[in-house]
Design a protein around this nucleic acid. Structure first.
Lengths: 250, 250
DNA sequence: CGCCGAATTGACACGGTTCAATTGAGGTGG
DNA sequence: CCACCTCAATTGAACCGTGTCAATTCGGCG
């Protein structure tokens, strides 16, 4: 299936190399990691809230989310985890997971424990360390962008900026072209991300579709009018994604 | 003024000692830090978004907030910074600030650069390092609690859980007793935190007051019915603050 | 073919925003 | 000491975005 297509180790290396130049040894470490895989079904809990974080993993294929379930049964999704993203990678020692990570589709992950010395600064993989730093910096930035979305944007703007965020991130790992991207999320999942009711998510999507801004197919989504979508998204609110500077042209 | 009362170095040490036992050398480092102060007026930018973080500071007195200003002029406040909290302390090397930190009242801060080696793990202050780790863990947790607030709670619940959060945090540094606490926030600031309109913040506060749950005086707030406020807050949604475990009784 | 979860749609209620005006409190200068 | 100014707080009324309830349709899969 489209959405489950695995990201190739090469793409992952390229993604990180774009953040900070990697030497060949660093690239091969990443490649090795990406090849040691494990599979999980939809709904699998990849990391439990409160669990101590000692073995970081790399998401290789499929989509997941960091989420918390409220007492009344509602869910709040903090972030969507895409191929090339890490699960349970933290710069603080002895950290515990602040949210559960759950598979939204079938998923494969790879053990990334080999990166722990690099994170701790115990080896000389400076480029890789810089890339990991920028990656986790981006994660934190996305969370703050999300706070702005939930706190200050309308349903239409939330949806538009969410779509644009996913598009940008998928393009970074080569899973989306200028227009079309995989989109395996149910409307319920989207509602749990955006803090809206399921019904209103449906209406909001239809509105964007009726305005010719996007097109949703089975498991995929196409951005028909990127500037228009930016306008709706109030994107000035979160110009940050573009700011994740790629390395200077070498 | 009540709210501007400085937290004594002793209280700060006690706060951190409650997270992880400190030895006397570690305690004296904190004390020295807390005594090297600088003053700032209301509205001062203590840390600019995008600025590189190299000199962490400790907030000694007054309140501040981490915030971002949107293109339309609205603000979104991500977190309230209270005495005993750090400004610009990050576990990743070469990090940049993801939001600006602005003084909400007159403020005094202290240079905490002396803690950098401890954060980097370059010295043997293990207890202090553990305490700092838990402190920043709590910061991140509060941010996720905030996402839940904005995404899933009603105005009343947001207000109630916000008040309870501030109460708990102020009690940790000895600035609030069982009932009353300093409360220098304008309703506009509260609206920027909770993602509500200024007018509705006013109405929500009045509702809590009319129900006999809280009482607001000049620069202070009293919790009259703590269990009642918990009930309104849907506090089950964010049981985390209580979970910041204090050290085991020695 | 029949089943089940996901998507869709309509009608209606309600929470929250917006606009506009008034009141209250602290600070400053005459 | 009072008049005045400014910003924060307060209140009312109308509007509208979003949630809720309830049905219906669609689509994949056994």
């Amino acid at each position: 299936m489209f959405a489950l297509r695995a990201v190739s180790p090469d793409r992952i290396v390229a993604n990180f190399d774009a953040l900070a130049s990697l030497d060949s040894e660093e690239a091969s470490v990443l490649t090795e990691i990406a090849e040691r895989k494990g599979k999980y079904l939809v709904g699998s809990v990849l990391l439990q809230q409160g669990q101590s974080i000692d073995a970081p993993r790399l998401l290789v294929s499929g989509w997941a989310c960091r989420t918390r379930t409220l007492p009344n049964g509602q869910k709040q999704i903090f972030a969507i985890v895409l191929p090339g993203d890490f699960i349970g990678l933290c710069w603080r020692p002895h950290a515990r997971a602040l949210s559960s990570t759950v598979a939204l589709t079938a998923v494969t992950t790879a053990d990334a424990s080999a990166l722990l010395p690099t994170v701790r600064g115990e080896d000389a993989r400076y480029g890789l360390r810089e890339a990991l730093m920028l990656k986790s910096w981006q994660d934190e930035m996305l969370l703050m962008d999300h706070v702005v979305r939930l706190g200050r944007q309308s349903a239409l703007a939330r949806m538009a900026s969410f779509v644009l965020e996913l598009q940008a991130r998928l393009q970074q790992v080569g899973m989306a072209d200028e227009r079309v991207m995989p989109f395996p999320l149910t409307q319920y999942a989207i509602s749990s991300v955006l803090g809206l009711s399921l019904v209103h998510v449906n209406r909001t999507l239809r509105s964007l579709r009726d305005d010719g801004l996007i097109q949703v197919g089975s498991g995929s989504l196409a951005v028909l009018d990127s500037p228009g979508l930016c306008a709706v998204s109030d994107f000035g609110a979160m110009p940050e994604l573009g700011v994740v500077r790629l390395k200077a042209p070498s």
